[in-house]
């Protein structure tokens, strides 16, 4: 798919992120519908802060972010710790995504049906149908990651921000999760920014891969040259 012709979903203009001190400076980037961007780099260098800043959870130190998405439900976020409600059921957690992603404008019954349909479809796709009523705290780490993915799939965001949600997953789980997310992104022409520890996987999944080094975000144009 040619992403260059479409209007950017996210535009970062001279963006500097951090808390008291800048962690990553002067980021200029455009992310278009359908694009998958990976960010790699060692721990504690500002990757998560960048994602949280784009999500609107942290104020930028400098520069600006232009988001061309719906304010409600347009942005999906899977934090490193997944953001699940531990005492609530799988269906409740997935339902939150569906709630954010569906409009109240239609009549309540139609909305309710559409919301439930999304929840059921997402739970089924992630192979969690038999766990729908279980509190998420009772699930294994891999199953919890599938719940967080189902929540995002039920939401159907235009832009997905995912923070290392593939790490510590076994190969079977990674396969199920990655296939479902990439299918969704392709079908709905949505974009994703993924923070990933595994560089090989990042390059394999994404269209563009960036690395944070010495406070700068730089594109890895050639994975081989980075390895040297």
């Amino acid at each position: 798919m040619n992403h260059a012709n479409s209007k950017p979903l996210v535009t970062l203009n001279d963006l500097t992120v951090g808390y008291d001190e800048p962690l990553v400076s002067k980021i200029n980037m455009e992310i278009r519908p359908g694009e998958i961007i990976s960010i790699v780099g060692s721990s504690g260098i500002g990757k998560t802060t960048l994602l949280r800043t784009i999500a609107g959870l942290v104020k930028p130190l400098e520069g600006s972010i232009n988001l061309n998405i719906q304010p409600r439900g347009g942005l999906g976020y899977i934090p490193q710790k997944l953001g699940l409600i531990r005492h609530a059921s799988v269906a409740h957690n997935v339902g939150l995504g569906a709630r954010a992603g569906t409009s109240f404008k239609e009549d309540p019954l139609t909305w309710w049906k559409r919301r439930n349909q999304r929840v059921n479809d997402a739970i089924e796709l992630m192979g969690l149908s038999d766990k729908a009523d279980e509190p998420t705290r009772r699930l294994s780490g891999g199953q919890q990651k599938r719940v967080a993915t189902a929540r995002t799939l039920a939401q159907q965001p235009q832009l997905l921000l995912a923070d290392e949600f593939l790490s510590e997953l076994d190969e079977d789980n990674i396969d199920v999760v990655v296939r479902a997310v990439i299918n969704y992104l392709e079908e709905s022409n949505a974009a994703m920014i993924l923070i990933e520890h595994n560089i090989e996987r990042a390059v394999e999944i994404s269209h563009r891969t960036f690395s944070v080094r010495e406070g700068k975000l730089t594109e890895l144009s050639d994975f081989g040259s980075e390895q040297e």
């Binding site: 999906g76 976020y77 953001g83 409600i85 939150l96 709630r99 954010a100 992603g101």
Partner: peptide, 19 residues
């Protein structure tokens, strides 16, 4: 993290409180 995920999704303050 549940608060951050739901805020990023765009849920309203009352939805975040009760759900």
């Amino acid at each position: 993290d549940p608060l951050e995920a739901s805020r990023a999704m765009g849920l309203s303050r009352s939805e975040i409180t009760f759900l």
